[in-house]
Write a protein that binds this DNA or RNA. Structure first.
Lengths: 166, 166
DNA sequence: CGGCCAGATAATAATCATTCTCCATTGATC
DNA sequence: GATCAATGGAGAATGATTATTATCTGGCCG
């Protein structure tokens, strides 16, 4: 996603009043390099080459700290482990309901949505949009294996606000 | 939310090829009457007057079955238990980041969002919008207790796609 | 009417993600 | 170098959810 050198990462940590440690440099650096919105587990496995002694709990703590400091954010799906995102620019997500890949997604129409709603006294401060569907690979896979009875499709995932086109 | 008589509920279950049982009638009926998007736990407690022997696992299974049949949907928040919604009309949600109340939300601008995106081959089929902010009660509570250092605000909840107004 | 089958339910154990507890380590400051 | 606070590691504990297994219920066949 972004190529950020360790020094820059260190600066960001310091600015956020987080102590600069190898664990944080590595985990945050890894997250910055990836654009697949990894889970804590996934990050844990990714950085074990660099930090063989790292414990999973530390990954969780580090991600909590980074999120608390506003350096990263969560992009979580129902019925799944947390996923994290180091891209702080306002953007939304394409979510593949088959392989669950999450892709960043920018669109003027969505970008410009205002959140000044005061319905029933609610004061909005941000908005999240998730576009659900099938990524290119899963479309192909489903076409190829159509005779399998669509078994690749998870049975219960995201039923809210289906478009009514049928 | 809706007042649906047991007979109507029974019809819906039958149409969905679900056997009509007291548990399902009660749980689905309860969910239809509520507009707070309850969790399985919450539903479990709500219906214990009617079904004292009900087990929590049955609530989960019933909700799974109803969701699988397309009669209800999930509205889940990160770091929380599942929440369910019996309102199948296309709509979105206002989420209070303090008390986590979820309110249904309809807006033409959001309603009309098309999901014909084919970015990088992605085929969209539905869209979810969550508007995050503070409900009326929590706004008041925060104003009243301002001196408490905003302690009412959960530290980590939904950092994605903050509006940049400040 | 009594037994049988399928699906539904209850009770309980198991699983998974996540968090907590407790102690060791580190780094900054004196 | 000693001290204090923050951090990290190991593993236990927690909470939500799911799986397992046995029990129950209601329709159907004789």
């Amino acid at each position: 996603m972004e190529l950020v050198d360790p020094h820059e990462i260190a600066i960001r940590l310091s600015r956020a009043d987080l102590k600069v440690t190898p664990q944080r440099l590595t985990i945050y650096g890894e997250l910055l390099e990836r654009d697949d919105h990894p889970s804590p587990e996934s990050l844990y496995h990714s950085v074990r080459d660099d930090l063989p002694k790292l414990s999973l709990a530390t990954v969780y703590k580090t991600l909590d700290a980074l999120e608390g400091a506003g350096l990263i954010s969560q992009v979580s799906l129902p019925n799944e482990a947390k996923r994290y995102d180091a891209n702080l620019e306002p953007h939304h997500h394409l979510v593949c309901t088959s392989c669950r890949k999450i892709t960043d997604f920018n669109d003027k129409k969505f970008q410009s949505l205002e959140v000044q709603h005061t319905e029933s006294g609610f004061r909005a401060h941000s908005i999240q949009v998730q576009v659900l569907g099938l990524c290119e690979l899963c479309q192909k896979a489903l076409q190829t294996h159509k005779s399998d009875g669509e078994g690749t499709m998870p049975s219960t995932f995201y039923n809210t606000t289906e478009e009514k086109n049928g």
